[in-house]
Design a protein around this nucleic acid. Structure first.
Lengths: 229, 229
DNA sequence: ACAAAGCTGACAGCGGGCTGAACGCAATCG
DNA sequence: CGATTGCGTTCAGCCCGCTGTCAGCTTTGT
């Protein structure tokens, strides 16, 4: 797996680079946004580790630009513990995960292999969930050939379900996944987004377990009348 | 997998408990050493998450006592970042691993599944109780391929039985488990819910011991021989 | 046979969950 | 630079199924 590390800290940067290399991945290290853009222009990466505070600009802008350019390369954001707003902005801008500094290098390895497991291996792992076909790498969902567009938050929520197939997910768990542990959300956001996902993907995709949480739907059309045209 | 969490922090405790439960494990939460001893006396666990600073003593003493009693249950110690000496002492006393607070819940999950893997269990183990097959992670019960849906309270009660296989559970114990000290219920709620469980799962699943309490049924279909897991 | 313990059907209240609409905000467009 | 669009979040109100309770019945032990 090819990894691009964007980090200006002279201590943390080499440490992370060496760890990623020790895990058996190819890694390039950029300490400025401009360098990062140049690396991206010259090569392609399977994962970007992105610090948000950089000497020549905000990492957030780079992330946003990549996403707007249609680049779905997974991005893990590196933030300090107190930069909560940055972290949220990162998730809004389309980051896939985050790591809070100071983080354990073992944890970094864990996230790396998680990404490698999800995106690596086959060039185009198509996943089937019910009557939907999804491409995690491209962040694309299709039904009967017609593609369905999700917003960043919607995808984040749906992704949480996909990563735990058949598992019952409590609202607390989902909130935690969407809002990075500390930022308090005092409303029914999860309910609203579940509703929107159902509207887009079909009501059967997510099933409610009253008082306990949600779960990926049990594909009721398994063999009975509803077949594929 | 059955997990005992010993942690007195009123924020971290429930958070960890929910995460462990979300990972599909049964979990009991003790906030004091004395409570932990009681839990251990009443049930058996596959893993203990142990905070070292507790209001009524040091977790280290509990760990040392268990090891001296010949109990090899894996223990993961939870420590604050600066308590290095405690951590070392914990490892010396027989801890299997440690987690530095504040830790990411994702990392907790990783350690949990590592322990589960070491134990030889799949990440999503299917449990068999009599003629029922249950998936703790999905909170799903099936018999002959047909799934049986339980409400939140029904599952809580059934879970109490599953956690203590073959153990006789008094109504007081069950009430305590379902209603967590605060709201006192002055009626035959337990009887009612046992009835509802029997209606859904089959009358033989829970057997009555008059004057004492209830117990998981002895699988009459298995014949005379005492089936062993 | 009697009393105590346990079981069950019915039911009212409530709280969890769903939805439409509105607001703030940032990005984009004219 | 103002207008517009689209996303994320909040809120109020409705709905419905779970939940606790009780009365009356059945079972069990002595």
């Amino acid at each position: 797996m090819r990894v691009l590390l964007v980090e200006d800290d002279p201590i943390l940067g080499p440490a992370v680079r060496d760890q990623v290399a020790a895990d058996g991945h190819g890694v390039d290290w950029a300490s400025r946004i401009a360098d990062a853009r140049e690396f991206i222009r010259l090569a392609s990466y399977d994962l970007i580790l992105l610090d948000l505070m950089l000497p020549d600009g905000r990492g957030l802008d780079l992330l946003r630009a990549r996403r707007q350019a249609g680049d779905a390369t997974p991005v893990i954001v590196l933030t300090a513990r107190d930069q909560v707003s940055d972290r949220i902005a990162g998730l809004n801008a389309g980051a896939d995960d985050y790591l809070v500094k100071p983080f354990d290098l073992a944890e970094l390895s864990a996230r790396l292999s998680a990404v490698a497991r999800r995106y690596g291996g086959n060039p185009n792992p198509l996943l089937r969930v019910g009557d939907l076909t999804l491409d995690l790498a491209a962040r694309t969902i299709t039904r009967d050939g017609r593609s369905i567009a999700l917003t960043a938050r919607e995808w984040a929520l749906f992704d949480a379900f996909i990563q735990r197939p058949a598992m019952l997910c409590s609202k607390a768990l989902l909130e935690e996944r969407l809002y990075a542990f500390d930022s308090e959300v005092e409303s029914n956001t999860i309910e609203v987004y579940v509703g929107r996902l159902r509207k887009k993907l079909g009501a059967h995709v997510i099933e409610t377990v009253r008082g306990m949480g949600y779960r990926l739907g049990a594909t009721p059309a398994a063999g009975s009348g509803k077949a594929r045209p």
